[in-house]
Amino acid sequence: MRLTYPPNVKIVKVPCTGRVDIIHMLKAFENGADGVFVAGCLEGECHFLKGNLRAKKRVAQTKALLDECGIGGDRIAMYNLSSAQGQRFAEISREMTEKVRQLGPNPARKGRAKAA
C-alpha cells in the first residue's frame, strides 16, 4: 500500500498489548518521548482474549500517573485497530503526532528544563 506516516513515530513491537506494562510507557517518557500511543487489536478480537482490555486499563492508569507527575496524561492514548487497517494506523500516527506537537515537547526530557 506504501502508506506514509510521520517519521518521528518509533515502533516498539510486542506480541500483544497485554504485554505492555505501566513502567514501559513511563520509561518511554522518561527517555524523552513526547507522546506514546498503544495500538491494540479491536476489542473482542484479542488472540489472548483480554490482552487489549488489560492494556486499556493500564493506559488509563498511566494517564493518571503522567497527570500527577506533571507530564500530562494527554500525551498517551490507546487505539484499537486490526492488522488489516494500515490506512487507519497511518491516520492515527498523524493524529497523535499532531496532538503531541500542539502539546509541545516532553517537559521532563533530560536537560531541557535546565536549558530553558
Binding site: 520509561k27 522518561e30 507527575c69 521532563a108 528544563a113
Partner: peptide
C-alpha cells in the same frame, strides 16, 4: 522512581 525523576527533571 520514574515519576519522581520526570517530575524533578521538569522542575529543573
Amino acid at each position: 522512581a520514574s515519576e519522581l525523576r520526570m517530575h524533578r527533571e521538569k522542575e529543573g
